[in-house]
């Protein structure tokens, strides 16, 4: 545990050193978020009755996504982990007396958290200061507030568990880059990274909400504004727990097989 704390600290300090990068990142997040708000405004003006959420809920969704981008987007991969697989250095990791799955999992969570800490505060602050309905509003009551945090961390767990599956898949394919890029862009769309799930065709929305994709950013970003509340919120959270257990458990078993294979074939 102590090792992970100091790992977190080093990442955080490293992040601070690159002040211009942090600044540029925040500015990018803001500009991107602003353009999304304007886009949905245009659609709202085109046909308000076709909006499946309130406009405020959409802007909240949008700004929170920008603020917690590093926690919730699948394409934040850890370069070190990928390199250790592609270079075969992972064979040395097997020798160590640690659970490799758990270690990579924690490492990825720490990486995401340390990046988010730096970037989310300015984005949130800016979004709060924007005039309604373009800015970020207060959470929908105490349920929205608590629901947001609970589902945010569950979503982070789901995202990392999913990403772990991608890492492990790289053990088995000769050409991991193409597959990975494809999976990432597909997942971005299916998890609500480009458009919130309620905007999708009803049947697709239903399916996605029950799938692991719906257990990612869809939950916290909608819980905050009350787009998901009451029983729907808490069954969603339960589904998040379910998928987390399935993906992490499955991933761990799969990784065991991948490593055994690695040992048999000698990398």
């Amino acid at each position: 545990m102590k090792a992970y704390m100091s790992f977190f600290r080093i990442r955080f300090l490293g992040g601070l050193q690159y002040r211009i990068a942090a600044l540029a990142g925040v500015a990018t997040q803001l500009a991107w978020g602003g353009l999304y708000v304007l886009l949905y405004k245009a659609f709202y003006e085109a046909d308000a009755s076709a909006f499946p959420m309130t406009f405020r809920q959409v802007t909240d969704y949008n700004w929170l996504r920008q603020a917690f981008l590093t926690l919730l987007f699948v394409w934040m991969l850890d370069r070190e982990t990928l390199e250790s697989i592609s270079s075969g250095a992972v064979a040395y990791e097997v020798v160590r007396p640690t659970d490799l799955y758990l270690m990579w999992f924690t490492k990825n969570v720490a990486m995401r958290l340390s990046r988010a800490v730096l970037r989310c505060v300015p984005v949130l602050l800016f979004a709060f200061l924007l005039p309604a309905p373009y800015g970020l509003s207060l959470p929908a009551g105490i349920e929205g507030f608590i629901g947001f945090f609970v589902t945010l961390f569950l979503a982070l767990g789901n995202v990392v568990a999913f990403v772990m599956l991608l890492y492990i898949a790289s053990f088995f394919t000769m050409n991991p880059t193409g597959l990975r890029v494809l999976m990432l862009s597909l997942t971005e769309f299916l998890s609500g990274g480009l458009i919130p799930l309620p905007f999708m065709p009803p049947l697709l929305q239903k399916i996605l909400e029950f799938s692991p994709f719906g257990a990612m950013m869809n939950m916290p970003l909608r819980a905050y504004s009350g787009s998901l509340s009451g029983p729907a919120l808490w069954t969603g959270a339960a589904l998040q727990v379910f998928w987390l257990i399935v993906m992490a458990g499955g991933g761990r078993l799969w990784m065991g097989r991948a490593l055994r294979r690695l040992q048999v074939q000698g990398g």
Binding site: A42, F43, A46, D47, A50, I195, F199, M200, P201
Partner: peptide, 9 residues
């Protein structure tokens, strides 16, 4: 997806 829902923008 968006244009199917809103038709024009």
């Amino acid at each position: 997806v968006l244009m199917q829902r809103f038709h024009t923008v």
